[in-house]
Computed example of a mutant assay.
Amino acid sequence: MVNKPDIRTAVPKHRYQLGEFQVVVLGEVESGDAQDYRYIMAVVREGDPEPGVYLTCERLPAEQRSGGAYGMRLVMRDGAELLGQEDGWRDLHRFTEDGLAVLRKLLNLGDETPYRLM
């Protein structure tokens, strides 16, 4: 996967079931790449051995902070895209809520409710 986060260590903060997907929100992320991750949302389809989609909350470099200090990046098998910037995403609850909304649209799960498992 292109631009996949190189997660060395992380602490699971929340787990959700969203249709046929399990979503794990990781915090206290230490990575081996250049990004400064605050949180990572890893999305695994039932039966798959590893995530196929990531949503990340990254502290942006100073020169990129015109819209906020934190960026939400969508990482999929074919590439990555910065979806937006928001200071509020430094808060776990806010990032999780907004990230789940993005995933519901992306995965065409508008009628599914995310169920918190942890």
Rank of each mutant, 00 (worst) to 15 (best):
S31A: 12
R90N: 07
E30K: 12
G52W: 00
R38F: 01
V44G: 11
T96E: 08
K13W: 09
P51G: 02
M1S: 04
M41C: 12
G84T: 14
R59M: 05
H93S: 13
S31P: 14
A34S: 09
Q35S: 05
E63I: 08
L18C: 06
V24D: 08
E97M: 12
L60A: 09
T96A: 10
G67V: 01
Y115P: 09
E46D: 04
L83W: 12
R65Y: 00
P49T: 03
C57Y: 05
E28Q: 11
M72F: 08
V11S: 11
R116L: 09
D87T: 04
Q85W: 00
L55M: 04
F21D: 00
R90A: 03
V43A: 08
A62Q: 10
W89C: 15
V102Y: 00
R8A: 06
H14F: 07
E86Y: 09
E81W: 06
M76A: 05
H93K: 14
V29A: 05
V44I: 15
L18D: 09
L117M: 10
K13D: 08
P49I: 02
L103C: 10
L92Y: 03
D36G: 07
A42W: 02
R90H: 08
L74Y: 04
V43D: 11
D6L: 06
A101M: 05
Y37N: 13
G52V: 01
R65V: 00
C57S: 09
S66K: 08
H14A: 12
G99Q: 04
E81M: 13
N3W: 10
L103V: 07
G32K: 10
K4S: 12
L26D: 08
M118I: 13
I40W: 04
R94H: 15
R8T: 08
R38G: 00
L26Y: 13
L109I: 07
R104W: 02
F95R: 00
R8W: 08
V53L: 03
V43N: 07
D78S: 13
L117N: 10
M41D: 07
C57E: 05
H93P: 12
G88A: 06
K105P: 07
A62F: 06
R77I: 14
A101Y: 06
L92P: 11
R73L: 11
T9P: 05
V29S: 03
V43S: 07
L18Y: 08
G67C: 00
V29G: 03
P49N: 00
E86D: 15
D91N: 15
R73P: 11
H93Y: 15
V44K: 06
L117A: 14
G47T: 07
L103Y: 04
R45V: 06
H93I: 12
E86I: 10
E112W: 01
A101S: 11
E28K: 15
M118N: 14
L92I: 13
T9H: 08
Y37H: 13
R77L: 09
V11N: 11
E86R: 15
G27F: 02
R38N: 02
G88H: 03
Q64A: 10
